[in-house]
Amino acid sequence: MNRGILWGLAIAIHFVVSSSFAESIFIDPEDGYLDGSRWLLEHSGFLPVPIIITEPAVGVGGGLALVFMEKNKDAPRPGHFSPPTITGVGAFGTDNQSWGGFGFYIKNWDQDRWRYMGGVGYASLNLTFYGFGGFPGVDDLKMDYNLKGAFLVQDLRHRLGESNFFYGGRYLYSDLEAKFEGDKPEFLVDKAIENRNGGLAILGNYDSRDNTLSPQSGLLSELRYYFFSENFGGDLDYNLGAWDTQGYFKWSEAWGASARLLGKWINGSAPFYAKPYIDLRGIAKQRYQGDYALSTEVELRWRPHPRWQYSVFGGAGKAVTDTEQISDSETAGTYGAGFRYLIARLVGFQMGIDIARGPDETVFYIQAGTAWF
């Protein structure tokens, strides 16, 4: 599930055969509001999800995903949220001729002691390479290219005893080709243009969030370190590290806040599109790249009603090719506002809209669940 997915609030109207059916399935008897929990969990229903893409890196577009949720049959851990099993397939296209298809599966079992996530897909994306650093006056390079190929991700982790600590691994594989409209940049070797990437990551995290879909309280802190190598099915040897920390704070039923600190670093002969980048709402993906990237974002939430939530947020980030440049490098700042609607109360799943302003443009996002993945 990603930030480009929207379930329109009127979706129930198209899938009901009578007003009584709609009232019994899509109206929550607890508060009388539109809700998809019972259709998804009790009737093995699928969610036909229109995909609305507003990511500036690939343009404006859309598609369709079918998302299936199944109630976790395990007895829940006392005092903990029991995530549903989620299966989905979908396809998309945008106005700059980018397109793709994907499938994913997410499952927790043994009272959330084991967590699995897998995905596969194929995409053709028309992107722009701005060089490393990417700030005006630092590097004026701007070259359009197409990145096409298949990808696979497998992620398995296990809870340490009865704690909130997890350990595990993740495998990434991609077979990609990058084609520039003109001559490729001179500093890119052939292997950076067409290659396979096979990487195995060791990871550890702490996760005390009250909900993995749309958290309101708790802490997530995860450290991942990837080893990309020919031994894992790739053509290139390089390492990639990431440390992602997210805190969610609930001061009262109406007020709360959240904050994120994301750092990524890389070394070795990595392809240019794998370089870390500033990851903030309001900035196109891969707009500011380097060997090191740091992004931080804070958000203030107001929830006047259990179904509705409003927020304001702001962030800043840096991308550099050398750690010695961090203090002197430019900072990219963003700010914005958004809202969420609790569309599936029994699983705590929210959907909504964010509007963010970055250094170059104003961006409109359709959000499904948390904005931070």
Rank of each mutant, 00 (worst) to 15 (best):
N96M: 06
G90I: 06
D322H: 10
L47V: 01
V347M: 12
G137T: 02
R281D: 10
L6N: 04
L294E: 00
V153E: 04
G338N: 02
M117C: 01
R281P: 07
I13F: 08
G118C: 09
I278E: 01
Y105P: 01
S82V: 04
E181H: 09
G218E: 04
P215G: 04
Q350A: 11
V347W: 00
S311H: 00
D354Q: 01
T85M: 07
P50F: 08
G336I: 04
S174W: 03
E177K: 14
G333C: 11
T370F: 04
F228I: 09
H14Q: 09
R3P: 02
M143W: 07
R281Y: 01
F187V: 08
M143D: 10
D112H: 13
K275L: 15
L9W: 04
G352K: 03
I11E: 06
Y248R: 05
P83K: 10
K275A: 15
F68V: 03
R159K: 15
D237V: 10
H305M: 10
R115G: 13
E162L: 11
Y225E: 00
R115Q: 14
F104G: 05
G263N: 09
R159E: 13
A274I: 07
V16A: 14
L66A: 14
W251L: 15
D360S: 13
T54Q: 06
D31N: 09
R260H: 02
A356D: 05
R77M: 09
L203C: 01
G263V: 13
L240W: 08
A274V: 02
A57G: 03
R170W: 10
G169T: 08
L219D: 06
L203K: 11
L40D: 00
G199I: 08
A293Q: 07
N126V: 11
Y341G: 06
T87G: 14
Q367L: 13
